[in-house]
Design a protein around this nucleic acid. Structure first.
Lengths: 215, 215
DNA sequence: CGCACGCTTGAAGCGCGTCAAAAAAGGTGG
DNA sequence: CCACCTTTTTTGACGCGCTTCAAGCGTGCG
């Protein structure tokens, strides 16, 4: 990494910039579509017509490289929206991770459901820009720490929360291998920063320390 | 890198997804603001009120980490637009790289100038997603090759073009050190793929080979 | 002309990936 | 509820690509 020392200092506000998503009113009036785990929601080539709001469950959005490697662009949890893309057709895959309920809102009728498409697009842009920093400038320990804090914040801010996704999903999101993810979690655990209640259930023991590491 | 072999294959369309920007009609009716090299256009904390269209010159948009590391989010060349952010205030820095002329369009009056803010945001999102792949999944040689091809395409597609930015700017954009940038350029030169007419002027000798490397 | 800054080149070290194997978790049918 | 099998996760040893640290080199501007 280029650790050239620049003069300007990052503000707290910037550091606190969340990885999360806009919270918009869920369109309860629309029918709830339910999906089993690991079910495709959309795929490249399909027309991008809808905005999807997660009622419950979790979704991964990703792309595949020509050599078969996978890049997870984003996870979407309850209360969050996804599905917007730059062109008329999808370039990305979206799949449920666990059993999931979605409200499907046609993009051209979004305003009727109080959805601000521009705000959603801007949030997605900011989120992607944050992700660049995450994968390009942080060490493995910093990435995992930031990721755990982000997951905690997006699930109510409690120190005790679920990781809906597998280690492989995390690895492909954070640009690490599953081995490194596993090793870093073990390291954070033995340092007393977190506890692994079960394989996909985390308790953050020392949030401040984790936050310091994640910067 | 997680090189797990997934089954789905990336389409050519996806691979060809450009790193470039939307081309919107320039608002020639607005006054042209000119800036010297290395001049701040906006900084974190300032109100985000405008969209900036580059008439000539080049701009870097970046953020700083608390420890002084810099992440260049994007470069903007003649004909491109920037300045959109998710909140009411800027989180990012924008600076000219070389002497630059800008048309400054108030966001709230963008539609009068035929600017689609949502489309601009979605393009920025797609560009950031491409950037994630660039910095997280490609080797140093692949990143530089992709970057050079992108720069060539965005300046008319000629094989002979200017790099307006310094090696440090390139390094902070590609998530490499200046030493690695320098070494890779030397390697591409000695392999006969490019020529360095001057320190910031590149000629691509074998575009196809460079393209093959960049994937 | 000479100094300063950006760029290049070299040598050594380290963080994370790769390869390998064991351990744990999760289904499935009896 | 328990054997059995599969998949996921963890742990270990080793290697490589890039960073780091350190000198030289070139180029432009006062």
């Amino acid at each position: 990494m280029s650790a050239v020392a620049y003069k300007k200092i990052m503000t707290n506000q910037q550091q606190a910039a969340a990885f999360g998503e806009v919270v918009v009113p869920l369109s309860k009036s629309l029918p709830l579509a339910t999906f089993a785990a690991s079910t495709e929601i959309f795929a490249p080539g399909q027309a991008a017509l809808n905005i999807y709001q997660v009622e419950f469950g979790a979704v991964r959005v990703y792309r595949l490289l020509s050599d078969g490697r996978r890049q997870v662009i984003a996870f979407h949890l309850a209360g969050e929206s996804f599905g917007l893309e730059a062109g008329a057709t999808h370039q990305l895959f979206a799949e449920t991770i666990i059993p999931t309920g979605l409200r499907i809102v046609p993009t051209d009728g979004a305003s009727r459901h109080q959805i601000d498409v521009t705000a959603l697009a801007l949030q997605a842009m900011a989120s992607a820009q944050n992700h660049i920093m995450l994968v390009s400038r942080l060490t493995a320990v910093e990435r995992i720490s930031a990721f755990l804090l982000d997951m905690a914040n997006r699930q109510g801010g409690l120190n005790h929360f679920d990781l809906p996704m597998s280690r492989l999903d995390m690895a492909d999101y954070l640009d690490l291998t599953i081995e490194t993810v596993s090793r870093v979690l073990a390291k954070l655990r033995s340092a007393g920063l977190i506890r692994l209640r079960s394989i996909r259930r985390i308790e953050i023991m020392r949030p401040e320390d984790l936050h310091n590491i994640s910067a």
